[in-house]
Amino acid sequence: MNKKTVKYALLASLPVMAGYIVLGIGFGILLYDKGYSFWWAILMSVVIYAGSMQYVGVGLLSGGASLISTAIMTLMVNARHLFYGISMVEKYRDTGTAKPYLIYALTDETYSLVCDPQLPDGVDRKKYYILVSLMDQSYWVFGSFLGGFLGSALKFNSQGIDFAMTALFVVIFVEQWEKASHHIPAVLGLALSLICLLIFGPDRFLIPAMLCIPAGLFLLKGKIVEEKNCEGGTKE
């Protein structure tokens, strides 16, 4: 494994490390408060490995939800993962034996690091995918273990620290904006998400937004391709 790839993956994953350890600790504490030891936190972080779903899961466990409502809730909260798969199908095609792991570990944050990386020369793309996925998950599992292990002994005033995740996505949005030869997809995603949020409210906007966005992208396909060709330089 070349050093440059390891170093690059580690640097790229640093912001996720900060966010995941803190959010993982929060999850571990929450679960501990409901009477589940750190083993449960580790178990969930390994077999589910989806941040926001695990927070919802704490509520489902403590409320004793039914199997059906748990399945439907998971479907709603995690439906956006379908998108990640669709946009990684080609990029992950040649990843060989690591492929099942890469797909299993494709969380929001990992997706944001693998979806469009402009890797410098000498960095191995496949190894970068694998390393970033492994590193991200180890931060998450470690964080949730720590939260569950230390329990409520670990209460510092962390209010607002979850903004780190928002900030990470904003940064990636800015980077994509600067590199992109077409801005219609970004604007469309933003506008349709906001419109759906206004109409359907915070708990229900994601599914309608996920239906509108691809529809909008297909409707505007001609314009998007045209905009791309006009500006001339794509990196593909």
């Binding site: 956006r80 946009s87 080609e90 990029k91 928002t166 994509q176």
Partner: peptide, 27 residues
């Protein structure tokens, strides 16, 4: 990969990142 999915794979990351930002700030 069918052509429409190839196209989506190319343009979706830009839309999704915007959607994720809105998702984070939804409340």
């Amino acid at each position: 990969t069918p052509k429409p999915i190839l196209y989506l794979g190319e343009v979706l990351p830009y839309s999704i990142m915007a959607m994720l930002v809105v998702y984070c700030l939804r409340n």
